[in-house]
Nucleic acid binder design. Structure first.
Lengths: 177, 177
DNA sequence: TTTCTCATGTAACGCGTTACATGATTAC
DNA sequence: GTAATCATGTAACGCGTTACATGAGAAA
């Protein structure tokens, strides 16, 4: 999936500039893109050419012009069609698992070290998501709020599963040596 | 991570041709690449130029020559250095979650449909991994076998978690309408 | 007769990444 | 004085994808 539908989705909530989009995307964990310039401005030109968004230039004194993008009816249609399409299965790239395939090249303590470092990273990510969950109004009871909470819960559950599995991994490896 | 370390890893178990590598990679779930030609033959040339593998041409009658690649000492070093480097956190691209961000554009039954279709796909993937787990000698008690089992368990746990979360998602959405 | 396996490779494209580039304002 | 924020964009590169190309033998 390209970033363009995420842009359409964000614009469906209201007009935004490229700069705004860039910030939102780079700060979101679920929208996994880096949110670099090329990834925003290029697709916006394409969306504009396809008539899915309109552009409005806002002059500013002493600052570059702001180009405010707004979704069109065609854009909303494209967004809805995408929303209705079956999402592909999650695409998980798990480098630790790949390294484990050849872990017999490592000494037991080298492997244990690797796992420790990995676990620390996962713990950090878990904390990040838990904090975000708290900040993002966990007590919002609207349908919107419920969905947002459920999205965060998926991430938190994912990292918890990973930590549980690491524990299991360690036990198995220890009982083996 | 590029595919080249996976290639080095596979070659560390013994010499293989590009065609062999292609088959192994495309049939592996953990090695998530498509295993298309361009993804194998191009990196092999690069690995050869860098002196991480050697090439040996095997003539065949009525069939194209086989080019057998073998890992060098430098290749083994590069592989080990990579194995020791801290793996990045898992990179999960979860399009259902992205769609859920704008699920208020959908009717409740459209959303329910989407979730059903998604669940069916996840169930298929879970079954695939469980079958592979069975075939890949679950009773191998060597360190190698243990690691292989643990890798599969990670995947199976991931899909199980996803299915549990879908159940939870449905309940929350139902109790909401 | 069509498809699969063996065995190699090339071409074109999509999408994402980092780094480069400008330039004023504000905060530490 | 250094960095961050606002605001736009370009250039070059990495890596992955599908499709194209050849050509023989074996199996369905």
């Amino acid at each position: 999936m390209s970033i363009q539908y995420a842009i359409l989705g964000l614009l469906s909530e209201g007009p935004l500039s490229g700069y705004d989009l860039k910030k939102i995307i780079s700060e979101s964990e679920t929208l996994y893109w880096s949110g670099n310039n090329n990834q925003i401005y290029r697709p916006l030109v394409k969306l504009f050419e396809e008539g899915l968004v309109t552009k409005q230039v806002e002059r500013q004194e002493d600052l570059p012009d702001r180009k405010i993008y707004q979704i069109t009816a065609a854009g909303e249609e494209a967004l809805k069609a995408w929303l209705l399409s079956t999402p592909p299965a999650p695409d998980l790239k798990h480098e630790l698992l790949i390294r484990l395939m050849w872990a017999d090249h490592l000494e037991p303590d080298e492997l244990a070290d690797l796992i420790d470092r990995y676990e620390a990273d996962i713990q950090t990510y878990l904390l990040m998501h838990q904090e975000k969950q708290k900040r993002d109004g966990a007590q919002d009871t609207s349908r919107r709020g419920t969905l947002s909470r459920l999205i965060h819960e998926n991430w938190i559950g994912f990292y918890r599963h990973e930590l549980d599995w690491i524990k299991h991994l360690r036990e198995e490896l220890n009982s083996h040596s």
